[in-house]
Simulated scan of single mutants.
Amino acid sequence: MNEAAILMNRIAGDLARAGDRILRAELGISYSRVLVLLALDLDGPASQQDLARWLGSTAPAVTGLLGELSAAGYVQVSADPDNRRRNRVDLTGEGQRIIRAARALLDRSFDELLRKADVDGAVLVTALSRIAATIQKAGD
């Protein structure tokens, strides 16, 4: 396996663990739950299947997360008006509030990490975007 691929995988895991620590301490919510809210915040209402794809997860795992997020008042799960066999997931007002707070915390933390590492965020985003687009194109 390529050294860069190994490093990116390790960094992704380290970022997820750091994000989880920050979010649990400050907001009482896990990183995996925030990712569900982030998907809805970025892309709008979605089906459970779409969320599973977005998260790189399984529908049963997402079902469990949605149950917890719904009980906390962050999402509303209802029958999809266009396809009654599917559920539609929407952010609630409380879900919008918590995702804004989570994004602000994580953004500050990541900006500080880039500053300490002396890395230009714009250059990093450009490179990662090109890699992501190439991977996406290869998967199509």
Score class of each variant (00 low, 15 high):
residue 98 I to M: 03
residue 122 A to S: 15
residue 91 L to S: 00
residue 109 S to G: 02
residue 66 L to E: 06
residue 50 D to K: 05
residue 27 L to Y: 02
residue 112 E to A: 13
residue 60 P to L: 04
residue 106 L to Y: 08
residue 133 A to V: 04
residue 128 L to E: 07
residue 118 D to I: 08
residue 26 E to S: 11
residue 91 L to H: 00
residue 51 L to F: 06
residue 134 T to Q: 12
residue 111 D to R: 13
residue 35 L to R: 15
residue 76 Q to T: 15
residue 45 P to Y: 02
residue 66 L to A: 04
residue 74 Y to V: 00
residue 17 R to I: 04
residue 78 S to A: 15
residue 42 L to T: 12
residue 95 G to P: 03
residue 29 I to L: 05
residue 87 N to H: 12
residue 71 A to R: 12
residue 46 A to G: 12
residue 42 L to Q: 15
residue 26 E to I: 01
residue 84 R to Y: 02
residue 103 R to E: 03
residue 124 L to H: 05
residue 109 S to Q: 06
residue 50 D to M: 02
residue 59 A to T: 06
residue 113 L to V: 06
residue 106 L to N: 09
residue 94 E to S: 11
residue 98 I to F: 02
residue 119 V to H: 11
residue 64 G to Y: 08
residue 47 S to W: 02
residue 97 R to G: 09
residue 42 L to N: 13
residue 24 R to S: 07
residue 31 Y to K: 13
residue 117 A to M: 03
residue 115 R to H: 11
residue 81 P to E: 05
residue 111 D to K: 15
residue 43 D to M: 01
residue 27 L to D: 06
residue 124 L to Y: 07
residue 24 R to G: 01
residue 51 L to A: 05
residue 88 R to K: 14
residue 93 G to W: 04
residue 21 R to M: 07
residue 75 V to D: 05
residue 61 A to I: 02
residue 100 R to D: 07
residue 129 S to C: 10
residue 40 L to A: 03
residue 134 T to E: 12
residue 116 K to S: 10
residue 46 A to F: 03
residue 25 A to Y: 03
residue 127 A to C: 10
residue 116 K to D: 13
residue 97 R to L: 11
residue 99 I to M: 15
residue 125 V to I: 09
residue 130 R to V: 08
residue 66 L to G: 03
residue 70 S to I: 05
residue 89 V to G: 08
residue 82 D to P: 01
residue 59 A to V: 04
residue 107 D to M: 06
residue 60 P to F: 03
residue 125 V to F: 11
residue 41 D to R: 12
residue 19 G to A: 14
residue 37 L to W: 05
residue 95 G to H: 05
residue 116 K to G: 09
residue 26 E to C: 06
residue 77 V to L: 08
residue 94 E to R: 14
residue 89 V to S: 08
residue 124 L to A: 15
residue 72 A to S: 14
residue 126 T to E: 13
residue 22 I to F: 14
residue 40 L to C: 05
residue 127 A to R: 14
residue 36 V to Y: 06
residue 129 S to E: 15
residue 128 L to G: 02
residue 56 G to H: 11
residue 30 S to E: 10
residue 19 G to Y: 12
residue 134 T to M: 11
residue 111 D to W: 13
residue 125 V to K: 09
residue 122 A to G: 06
residue 55 L to W: 02
residue 72 A to D: 13
residue 117 A to I: 00
residue 91 L to G: 00
residue 76 Q to G: 10
residue 29 I to C: 01
residue 103 R to F: 04
residue 29 I to F: 02
residue 70 S to N: 14
residue 119 V to K: 09
residue 26 E to D: 09
residue 132 A to P: 03
residue 113 L to E: 04
residue 43 D to V: 00
residue 71 A to E: 15
residue 77 V to A: 09
residue 66 L to K: 04
residue 69 L to R: 05
residue 93 G to C: 02
residue 47 S to H: 03
residue 91 L to E: 00
residue 84 R to C: 01
residue 131 I to W: 02
residue 129 S to T: 15
residue 107 D to R: 12
residue 85 R to E: 12
residue 26 E to W: 00
residue 86 R to C: 07
residue 72 A to W: 07
residue 86 R to G: 08
residue 70 S to C: 07
residue 35 L to S: 14
residue 17 R to A: 13
residue 46 A to Y: 01
residue 54 W to Q: 13
residue 63 T to W: 09
residue 90 D to M: 06
residue 50 D to F: 01
residue 46 A to Q: 15
residue 62 V to S: 10
residue 61 A to Q: 08
residue 93 G to N: 08
residue 114 L to A: 09
residue 56 G to Q: 12
